[in-house]
Simulated scan of single mutants.
Amino acid sequence: MNAEFIEALKELEKEKNISIDILLEAIEAALISAYKKNFGSSQNVRVEVNRDTGEIHVYNRRDIVSEVEDPRLEVSLEEARIIRPDYEAGDILETEVTPRTFGRIAAQTAKQVVVQRIREAERSNIYEEFVNRESDIVTGIVQRHEMKNVFIDLGKAEAVLMPTEQIAKEQYNQGDRIKAYIVEVKKTTKGPQILLSRTHPGLLKRLFELEVPEIHDGTVELKSVAREAGARSKIAVYSKHENVDPVGACVGPKGMRVQAIVNELRGEKIDIVKWSSDPAVFVENALSPAKVVSVEIDLNEKVARVVVPDYQLSLAIGKEGQNARLAAKLTSWKIDIKSESQAMGSAENMEME
């Protein structure tokens, strides 16, 4: 321990963003343990590391009492007053007991403590950085696969893409650069565990925020997202400014903006619809690209009864009900779709009854 060691600690403080006081406090605590282990555990000692020179001093601390019961921990008032006349019972007498052979032990102990504290601080810094980025998007490089988990290198940390958060048809090859959504950051003994997702609706939302300046600056508002990852998604957008077309802003010139997002999601189809405060209009827009004849809203049951032309029924429902299902998720309304002939037949049956 010397001035060079203190300078090294100051460099670490700047490089690793760890306070030198924290490091020195940890070193002092470790040196106390090292001293007790080598020179007697029954003593009450204090270790002091000089902040300027790096010199170490060990002090034996004993309580000043009228009657001594344990001489290792206590000293009589008379004996203490020989050293300094103004001592009183209840004071603490400190005597320097720094051993000559303590330097090598101190150096080894200090090195171990510093290395450990650096690791802890780096893990803590990484955790703090990424926990503040939950619900955000990150770009990383695929490193390896383990038990169907895909590990992504984020530069400062490694994150995991679990099987449930992977898009079924996607292939994640080593070296691929991908964007993912931070679902959760956990603190563990081995450092922060960062959980990513490629299926979360938040990924689609954040991609549009990154790609569309009007969403980023608040001119266009992304109201809701419905997603079946890898297949198809719908988003509802709105603008308070009459001269701004929210759908056109998201599509971009020649479809460039939405195409960039489609490419990032490996071909996932995206429907962009205009949000409306009128549930009937919103439901009609959400069923796009199908044309709608009429929408009847039942506020009590929160059901939208939709009538479409006969030739548009399959388009409105979609393959395996996908279009209707996404529209229901997007609007938060139950949607009952019928063709014109079905609606007419139902009306005739009601009249007959």
Score class of each variant (00 low, 15 high):
residue 110 A to K: 03
residue 110 A to Q: 07
residue 110 A to Y: 08
residue 111 K to L: 11
residue 111 K to R: 14
residue 111 K to D: 06
residue 111 K to I: 05
residue 111 K to Y: 13
residue 112 Q to Y: 06
residue 113 V to Y: 02
residue 113 V to L: 02
residue 113 V to C: 01
residue 114 V to W: 07
residue 115 V to W: 00
residue 116 Q to M: 06
residue 116 Q to Y: 03
residue 117 R to F: 03
residue 118 I to H: 05
residue 118 I to R: 05
residue 119 R to W: 03
residue 119 R to N: 01
residue 121 A to E: 08
residue 122 E to L: 02
residue 122 E to C: 02
residue 122 E to G: 02
residue 123 R to N: 11
residue 123 R to K: 12
residue 123 R to V: 06
residue 125 N to W: 04
residue 125 N to Q: 08
residue 125 N to H: 09
residue 125 N to C: 03
residue 126 I to E: 13
residue 127 Y to L: 11
residue 127 Y to S: 06
residue 129 E to T: 03
residue 129 E to V: 01
residue 129 E to A: 07
residue 130 F to H: 08
residue 130 F to M: 11
residue 130 F to I: 04
residue 131 V to C: 05
residue 131 V to T: 12
residue 131 V to H: 06
residue 132 N to I: 03
residue 132 N to P: 01
residue 132 N to D: 14
residue 132 N to H: 08
residue 133 R to L: 14
residue 133 R to H: 10
residue 133 R to W: 04
residue 134 E to F: 00
residue 134 E to M: 02
residue 135 S to Q: 13
residue 136 D to V: 03
residue 137 I to K: 04
residue 137 I to S: 06
residue 137 I to L: 13
residue 138 V to D: 15
residue 139 T to Q: 15
residue 140 G to Q: 09
residue 141 I to N: 11
residue 141 I to S: 13
residue 141 I to T: 15
residue 142 V to A: 01
residue 143 Q to F: 05
residue 143 Q to Y: 05
residue 143 Q to A: 12
residue 144 R to A: 02
residue 144 R to K: 13
residue 144 R to P: 00
residue 144 R to F: 01
residue 144 R to D: 02
residue 144 R to T: 04
residue 144 R to G: 00
residue 144 R to H: 02
residue 145 H to S: 04
residue 146 E to C: 04
residue 147 M to R: 15
residue 147 M to S: 13
residue 147 M to D: 15
residue 150 V to D: 14
residue 150 V to I: 15
residue 152 I to D: 11
residue 152 I to M: 15
residue 153 D to W: 06
residue 153 D to Q: 09
residue 153 D to C: 11
residue 154 L to K: 00
residue 155 G to H: 09
residue 155 G to S: 10
residue 155 G to I: 09
residue 156 K to V: 00
residue 156 K to T: 02
residue 157 A to H: 09
residue 159 A to I: 02
residue 159 A to N: 02
residue 161 L to N: 09
residue 162 M to E: 14
residue 162 M to G: 00
residue 164 T to I: 08
residue 164 T to H: 14
residue 166 Q to T: 06
residue 166 Q to A: 08
residue 166 Q to E: 09
residue 166 Q to V: 04
residue 167 I to Y: 05
residue 168 A to E: 01
residue 169 K to Y: 08
residue 169 K to V: 15
residue 169 K to C: 03
residue 171 Q to L: 10
residue 172 Y to C: 08
residue 173 N to R: 15
residue 173 N to Q: 10
residue 174 Q to S: 12
residue 174 Q to W: 04
residue 174 Q to H: 09
residue 175 G to S: 00
residue 176 D to V: 08
residue 176 D to K: 07
residue 177 R to C: 11
residue 178 I to F: 02
residue 178 I to P: 00
residue 180 A to M: 10
residue 180 A to W: 07
residue 181 Y to N: 13
residue 181 Y to M: 11
residue 183 V to P: 06
residue 184 E to T: 14
residue 185 V to W: 04
residue 186 K to Y: 13
residue 187 K to T: 15
residue 188 T to R: 07
residue 188 T to E: 13
residue 189 T to C: 03
residue 189 T to V: 08
residue 190 K to C: 07
residue 190 K to M: 10
residue 191 G to F: 02
residue 191 G to W: 03
residue 192 P to Y: 12
residue 193 Q to S: 15
residue 193 Q to G: 01
residue 194 I to P: 11
residue 194 I to C: 12
residue 194 I to E: 13
residue 195 L to H: 07
residue 196 L to S: 10
residue 197 S to W: 02
residue 197 S to D: 06
residue 199 T to S: 04
residue 199 T to H: 00
residue 199 T to N: 00
residue 199 T to A: 01
residue 199 T to E: 01
